[in-house]
């Protein structure tokens, strides 16, 4: 590494360096500006992955002729092992046009990946059913004529305590002063089960003791705290849950 490279690194790490040319300084300042941008450091909410999966599952369920395979990871690992090929995730690729000359490290995938895949498959087979993912449903939720701009998605996951419903919806105003939202699940016979109340639907966790396998129709109504706990019938958000796992 040349002395000039040491100067460049020192400049980047905050030292005062006099030897750099204005051109060199400008190049490095560009990188410093990128490092200072908040967008460089933000991380998406961990629940976003489930919401993305739920949104696509809902699209698949709506699209005629399309069908999700829903193959569990264990099945994929077994299939891959049976064919003697390693299980490798999709590698992120960099944009074709890049101003900075990013050198991509070259990984020796061959033996290492095969060995890792063999270990992963062995673990999956050894653990058997104990590693199976919980039953999960998902849905897109849309606004009714009472809330035409509302939209969002939800995942419904079976747990030991009941069904956890993670709802994320936009376009519903914040309710207060005795008004609130109430979520419901309904079965084909029309039986309604309340699953929780809230003021704002941006990120809500609801719980259902009724099985989502039977109670798949989801709705949200606007309620008034007036001593009458039945549904007001003023539905603002609806959706149908589909199994994704």
């Amino acid at each position: 590494m040349s002395a000039s490279d040491n100067d460049r690194i020192s400049y980047l790490s905050g030292e005062t360096v006099e030897s750099l040319t204005p051109q060199e300084r400008a190049e490095l300042d560009e990188l410093l500006r990128a490092l200072e941008a908040p967008g460089m450091w933000v991380e998406p909410d961990p629940g976003l992955e489930d919401r993305v999966v739920a949104a696509i599952a809902a699209e698949v369920a709506r699209a005629p002729g399309e069908e999700a395979t829903g193959a569990p990871a264990e099945d994929a690992a077994r299939a891959a092992a049976a064919q003697g090929r390693p299980v490798v995730p999709l590698a992120p690729v960099r944009p074709a046009r890049a101003r900075w000359r990013l050198r991509r490290p070259v990984f020796a995938l061959g033996g290492l990946a095969t060995a890792a895949a063999a270990i992963a498959v062995a673990l999956v087979l050894a653990l058997g059913g104990s590693s199976r993912a919980p039953l999960q449903f998902a849905m897109a939720v849309t606004g009714t004529p009472l809330a035409p701009g509302a939209h969002g998605s939800a995942t419904l996951t079976k747990t030991e305590s009941g069904w956890r419903i993670d709802l994320s919806a936009r376009g519903l105003p914040h309710l207060q002063n005795g008004r609130y939202y109430q979520a419901w699940l309904k079965n084909p016979a029309g039986i309604l089960v309340p699953v929780g109340t809230f003021n704002d639907a941006l990120h809500v966790t609801l719980w259902s003791g009724a099985p989502v396998t039977q109670f798949r129709a989801f709705s949200v109504t606007v309620q008034q705290a007036n001593g009458n706990p039945v549904s007001s019938g003023r539905r603002v958000l609806v959706g149908i849950a589909h199994q994704i796992r």
Binding site: E49, V52, V53, A57, V60, T69, G70, A71, L90, I244
Partner: peptide, 11 residues
């Protein structure tokens, strides 16, 4: 095909 595992992997 909308396979949830594949969607997760791409995400």
């Amino acid at each position: 095909r909308g396979d949830p595992d594949a969607v997760r992997s791409v995400y």
